[in-house]
């Protein structure tokens, strides 16, 4: 009984943290709950939400994906070069969106294949792929910044429906898709099975290798979409536009309550995690704290969230 109670508190903790955070910020600053600030919050949360949907599945398997920034940067640069811009003479309009998602998916597939086929820990393969992606994006542009002149492509994030930017609707759609994958598909079940106990999963016939590869590819598709959205939002493509995204993504996932050891958590946890990170950042801006402090605070959040959420009984040796 006591166990189930503490477990319930634990699963509610992220929501409680979010509510407490909102209360504290709202009580010190009346602008926080204004409609325009709430829309600003949602708009800031849109791209992190898309990225987190991919990363959550990877972390649920007990793996990690450190290639977020690289894949986002390369997808953004590719998208910005496919729409009307000042670097290439292409003007393919919305083809850029599926193209960026496809590119992201292929890079994710490379992550998965190298990780599974060569049996290398995922932090290492994704670190390598991510680094190569940033390098390639830098080398393609040679330090140049692509400026996007395609108005309709920029509408993708800047246009509004019921006063809310399209990017937020896109993010909402991604959450729905991810939730359906998690709840209603075999892949979703298998991800939990692998994260909980890979040996048993294998014995009961879960195609562990294929699932792993597929999940990394799926994560890449989300990052590709996030990259296209970043390009659309900034109206630019350059190699450093994704700086800080990896940090926000991992912080959001672990703060939401998804355990790094795998098997515990959900995409909805990660939605709460993103909101915690975004609300905290917004609150710090409202309080006049320098923006560069956010990385440090996120670092502390990671430590705090992981040390509270880690199921230590499963960790005899911590590497």
């Amino acid at each position: 009984m006591a166990v189930s109670f503490s477990r319930r508190i634990r699963s509610l903790a992220p929501v409680l943290v979010l509510l407490a955070l909102c209360l504290v910020i709202a009580s010190t600053n009346s602008n926080f709950l204004s409609v325009s600030n709430l829309i600003r919050l949602l708009s800031a949360a849109a791209i992190p939400l898309v990225l987190v949907m991919g990363a959550t599945f990877v972390i649920l398997m007990g793996s990690i994906d450190l290639s977020v920034e690289g894949v986002v940067a390369l997808a953004a640069v590719a998208a910005s070069m496919l729409v009307a811009n000042d670097f290439t003479s292409l003007d393919l309009g919305f083809v850029a969106l599926p193209a960026a998602m496809l590119l992201g998916g292929l890079l994710g597939l490379a992550n998965g294949l190298l990780h599974v086929r060569l049996a290398i820990p995922s932090f290492m393969t994704t670190l390598g792929i991510g680094f190569a992606c940033v390098g390639v994006a830098t080398a393609i542009l040679g330090g140049f910044t692509v400026r996007i002149s395609d108005r309709t492509f920029r509408e993708l994030t800047l246009g509004r429906l019921f006063d809310v930017p399209y990017s937020v609707w896109v993010a909402g759609l991604c959450v729905l898709v991810a939730w359906i994958i998690q709840e209603r598909t075999r892949i979703g079940r298998w991800v939990y099975a692998i994260g909980t106990d890979e040996h048993t999963a294998r014995q009961v016939g879960v195609p562990v290798e294929r699932t792993r590869i597929l999940v990394f590819a799926l994560a890449g598709v989300f990052y590709g979409l996030g990259g296209a959205m970043s390009a659309s939002q900034l109206g630019q493509g350059h190699a450093l536009l994704s700086q800080g995204r990896l940090f926000t993504t991992i912080t959001a996932v672990v703060v939401g309550g998804t355990a790094l050891s795998g098997g515990v958590g959900s995409v909805l946890n990660s939605v709460v995690g993103v909101l915690v990170v975004i609300v905290l950042a917004n609150g710090m801006v409202l309080m006049g704290i320098e923006p560069f402090v956010q990385q440090g605070v996120q670092g502390l959040l990671i430590i705090l969230a992981v040390s509270l959420a880690l199921d230590r009984s499963r960790l005899a040796v911590v590497k």
Binding site: V254, F292, G299, I302, V306, L310, K319
Partner: peptide
């Protein structure tokens, strides 16, 4: 990493956020 039993890749990732803030400061 040791006292809080956090895997080193995530502990050091978190620390890198903190030292980056110190660098900017």
């Amino acid at each position: 990493s040791t006292r809080l039993r956090i895997p080193s890749f995530i502990a050091s990732l978190a620390i890198s956020g903190i030292v980056t803030t110190v660098a900017y400061w």
